[in-house]
């Protein structure tokens, strides 16, 4: 599903990613953890071209991101993204937020999209909020709408960039619940998160990054209960 080989990313002289390689299979749920500045968000943003790739190859669902003739829009329709700050469009109601991309970008018929959008809203537990503006929702509710918005494009992969970091503690649970259900349905997910509980419970695999490289990569039980690398041990002892 996702193949990353020797991915490098620099901003001027500052090298943020220093050679990342990994394979992510379909339906796998991968949590990327690590201290701030470790490059984990940059890595995630490279996967849907929000950051350009300095060198290396990334292939997602058959799209080679290094290809000069690449259709950027097609990749992004295939890869859903959920942001830390939700980034809902404030001038559109909840339902419009979910429908805008399928209707205008994917050119799907309005009626079908509308039904689908309502279904998705129901799925994230916000069926009653279709006609309100995002500003009337709590952070957790906005984030669930943002997940529905991304799902409305029928992505094959979902990327989550610290989806719960900007939320009040009491609303985090609902968002994680939605993500967990998505994982159970077989969605391929890459999640950058500080939620160790979620990583341990839901993820098939945990990647620990530090200083722009992958330090350790394994199943959650291995990483959390029996970390091999000293840097992983140090990080986990600080966050738990």
């Amino acid at each position: 599903m996702i193949t990353v080989k020797d991915l490098h990313k620099s901003y001027g002289k500052l090298e943020v990613l220093k050679g990342i390689s990994c394979e992510i299979d379909a339906s796998q749920v991968v949590c990327v953890i690590g201290p701030s500045g470790s490059g984990k968000s940059t890595f995630l943003r490279c996967l849907n071209l929000l950051e350009s790739i300095t060198s290396g190859t990334v292939v997602i669902n058959g799209h080679d991101l290094g290809d000069r003739k690449l259709n950027t829009s097609a990749v992004r329709q295939d890869v859903g993204m959920v942001f830390q700050q939700f980034n809902l469009f404030p001038h559109m109601k909840v339902l419009e937020n979910i429908m805008i991309a399928p209707v205008k970008v994917a050119k799907k018929p309005k009626a079908v999209t509308r039904e689908k959008a309502l279904e998705l809203l129901d799925k994230v537990g916000l069926a009653s909020k279709a006609d309100v503006y995002p500003s009337a929702l709590s952070g957790g509710q906005q984030q669930r709408v943002a997940i529905a918005r991304a799902l409305a494009m029928d992505p094959t992969v979902m990327l989550f960039d610290e989806p719960t970091s900007a939320l009040d503690p009491e609303t985090v649970g609902d968002v994680l619940q939605v993500m967990k259900r998505l994982a159970e349905e077989g969605m391929t997910m890459v999640v950058v998160s500080h939620e160790m509980g979620f990583a341990r419970e839901v993820a098939d695999r945990v990647i620990f990054m530090d200083g722009g490289v992958i330090v350790e990569d394994g199943n959650p039980a291995e990483i959390f209960d029996n970390p091999k690398e000293a840097r992983t041990q140090a990080f986990l002892s600080r966050v738990s």
């Binding site: 942001f83 700050q85 980034n87």
Partner: peptide, 29 residues
């Protein structure tokens, strides 16, 4: 805000769609 540009791009919008549906309605205010 920058996040609005990124969200529009992440949904696959091209330059015209991004400005027409997301950025300009907010900028016009």
């Amino acid at each position: 805000p920058k996040g609005q540009f990124e969200a529009a791009e992440a949904l696959g919008m091209n330059f015209a769609q991004k400005f027409r549906y997301v950025i300009m309605p907010q900028a016009m205010r």
